[in-house]
Design a binder for these strands. Structure first.
Lengths: 259, 259
DNA sequence: CGACATGTTGAACCTCATCAACCGACGTGG
DNA sequence: CCACGTCGGTTGATGAGGTTCAACATGTCG
């Protein structure tokens, strides 16, 4: 009785994938996983590279494995709004349509698990669980988008920045996956440039910078370096953002709620 | 050989339903339709009434049959942002979760086709087509939400108003359903109050009023009465909104794209 | 080391929110 | 029937918050 290594290989590939337990594939059984493997390819994009462009048809979708992807839309006269930031395990692209209404661009260096669209849609058809999970994720994404509308529509600059930082804190809390130590040192990464923060929050870079300085001056945070901040007063930060302070959950593996 | 009238009744009820061809049920076969009928109830809400409130669990979802529903979220200090306007055939409520993150309120008098949540989710499980359609609709909704983020994030007051009017024009163009004459008279309804427009567009009522007056002064529109406007220059309107002008489609029955 | 990108800080301007007065429509009660 | 209050909408005056323009600082890469 022998074991067919080739048969197991694809499963192992996914087995070591960092987003295996959170992305769409978390609900895939062995059969579905093998099918996904056959149409998937890990691709790297450098910061600044365009992954897919609005108006141009795209023949693949994907999952963010590492890095941050920004979804953007540009007004006819050139202003750019970031309508979504996608983090590891998030889904990129528009299923069941030829093109996306938005461009996707690598905000940092990005690894993407790319899936050919026709193949992917066939797999969705064959595996209800996957399609169901996609529906759930899309509903969460919609809630998150609407939450962001609240921010864009009626929050002040200070509230916006605080909300953004808080979102990063929440993300860090919820993706600990047990392998990282609990963040008693409350240092977090600012994964994107000031310009991208500005684009996401609907304000000017200068205002972003000023508000960060203000939070620093008020002793709410400290800027370790340009890409890392330390939270000195989480309560105050949450208060400024107009939200409840987040709580660290020990094992956040299955904490899928989005912020 | 006799016909069981009771058997046919539910189908007839839906048969005369104005949103039968556009809502979720458009993909329901007779069997699914009968199942939906058994858990559905047409309910009326008066303008201003709360349909469901964030934080409070809700045991039903629904489809807007007539009227306009606003989805709102309130900041801790009382500012209200409207994160979505739902028109006839749009879906209300959050499937696969106990409560919605947003409140739904009748912006006008509303007729809602209410469906008990547990029953509805069972029907989704039994009828893939329905769940698939829900996925497609949710994806469209997400695109629309992101489109709105562009508006909230980087458009001026004038652009916002123009975009809003244009959205109403598009809706009217796309839901003609052949029964209404093509709108050679370009008169459209403002289905919500100035306050709700303001809440949706993220600006003050006064600004809404002023911008409407400005469009009037510029000869782009005319205010027939407080709830109806006539478009005198569609091209200009689209230009101000920063979009392509919409085109009237003869038979828009299956035009499901959202704006 | 200089060149270029990215981030910060300062000053002037402008859009829009805010406060306030006013108008017309509507409903109620005297 | 008219006086009255209320509510939704419009218009005017004022000021604050945030954009814009500009200079400067910092960091990175050849």
């Amino acid at each position: 009785m022998s074991i067919d290594i080739a048969e197991l290989l694809p499963l192992n590939r996914c087995g070591t994938c960092p987003i295996r337990h959170r992305a769409l594939c978390s609900v895939a059984d062995d059969k579905a996983l093998k099918a996904l493997n056959q149409i998937s390819r890990r691709t790297r994009f450098e910061a600044g590279q365009t992954i897919m462009s609005e108006e141009a048809p795209v023949d693949f979708v994907g999952n963010v494995v590492s890095g941050v992807v920004k979804l953007t839309k540009i007004t006819p006269d050139g202003r750019e709004q970031i309508v979504g930031l996608l983090f590891p395990s998030d889904f990129v692209g528009r299923t069941f349509a030829d093109s996306s209404a938005f461009s996707a661009e690598a905000a940092t260096d990005v690894e993407l698990c790319c899936l050919q669209k026709p193949g992917f849609e066939r797999i969705l058809a064959d595996h209800r669980d996957l399609e169901h999970k996609l529906l759930i994720d899309t509903l969460d994404e919609l809630d998150a988008a609407r939450e962001w509308m609240l921010l864009l529509g009626c929050k002040t600059a200070a509230e916006k920045i605080a909300s953004f930082l808080l979102m990063l804190v929440r993300r860090a809390f919820n993706t600990g996956c047990g392998q990282d130590p609990p963040p008693n040192q409350l240092v977090f990464e600012l994964p994107v440039s000031r310009a991208d923060m500005a684009g996401y929050l609907g304000m000017a870079v200068e205002t972003v910078s000023r508000q960060l300085s203000q939070l620093k001056a008020d002793g709410v945070i400290r800027l370790v370096d340009v890409q890392h901040f330390l939270v000195k007063d989480l309560g105050r930060l949450a208060e400024i953002a107009g939200q409840e302070p987040p709580v660290y959950v020990e094992d956040a593996e299955f904490e899928t709620r989005r912020y």
